[in-house]
Design a binder for these strands. Structure first.
Length: 216
DNA sequence: ATATTCCGCGTTTTTACGTCA
DNA sequence: TTTGACGTAAAAACGCGGAAT
């Protein structure tokens, strides 16, 4: 097993290349492997420029009894991953020329570089989605708390209204505000005033709604 | 209209690693 | 303490469909 882990870069891999007709002498790498007009190529037939140092021993992955060869997966070295990440930081997508150059640098097939970038973009998107989900959760919790406070205040005001002989409740002076729209003095509830200050901590900016500020 | 290429997306497969008996 | 079975997360690879050329 350790031997296997140490030599993961030596694995025999196959790759489907569009535009090649399928060869009967090359079995599919899996039951779902290979598209319509595809030819399986050995992607471990790396260019002779220095790639041999990573591949100390050749494993024969020829199919047993003519059956389909098991799909083997290359594990990228740390240096390969580092270079790919660095390249990804500069460009999340590669044009064919960039792909070719990067593949040559890494002693990989262009298809492998392409797949890596596709998977990397997918991981990026997933991470972004997870972050947005967390954001929305926190926002929802915050809105729930606001709503709870407002409900509580409504109950208190109702109770006060019942306690007043004429049913009128004088607003506290600290709650008097000027409506920016009609320039008339209006009142805000204490909870609303409180949340007006806490709104700055909301995950998302909430646009002002002047029409709801004025009930005159 | 057809072929080719590229990419996104969902899925499959392999690998590495942790846990547990 | 070691070992092998098992479960699982991560990632490489695959296949398909759609868009662009």
């Amino acid at each position: 097993m350790d031997n296997f882990r140490n030599n993961y870069s030596c694995l025999q891999l196959t790759i489907a290349m569009p535009g090649f007709s399928s060869s009967p002498s090359v079995p599919s790498s899996g039951e779902s492997g290979g598209g319509g007009a595809m030819k399986e190529l050995d992607i471990n037939q790396v260019p002779s420029s220095g790639a041999e140092e990573e591949c100390m021993e050749e494993e024969d992955e020829s199919p047993i009894n003519g059956g389909p060869a098991p799909r083997k997966k290359l594990r990228l070295t740390k240096e390969q991953s580092r270079l790919l990440e660095e390249s990804f930081r500069h460009n999340q997508t590669l044009n064919p020329k960039q792909k070719e150059i990067l593949a040559e640098q890494l002693h990989l097939k262009p298809r492998q570089v392409e797949v890596w970038f596709q998977n990397r973009r997918a991981r990026s998107k997933l991470k972004q989605t997870e972050m947005e989900c967390e954001y929305l959760k926190r926002w929802f919790a915050s809105l729930k708390e606001q709503n709870r406070k407002l409900q509580k205040e409504v109950e208190e005001l109702r109770a006060m209204k019942v306690g007043q002989p004429n049913g009128r409740v004088p607003p506290p002076a600290s709650n008097l505000t000027m409506c920016p729209r009609c320039q008339r003095v209006t009142t805000t509830t204490t909870a609303a005033a409180a949340t007006a200050t806490t709104n700055t901590n909301m995950p998302f900016h909430q646009p002002r709604q002047p029409s709801t500020a004025c009930y005159n």
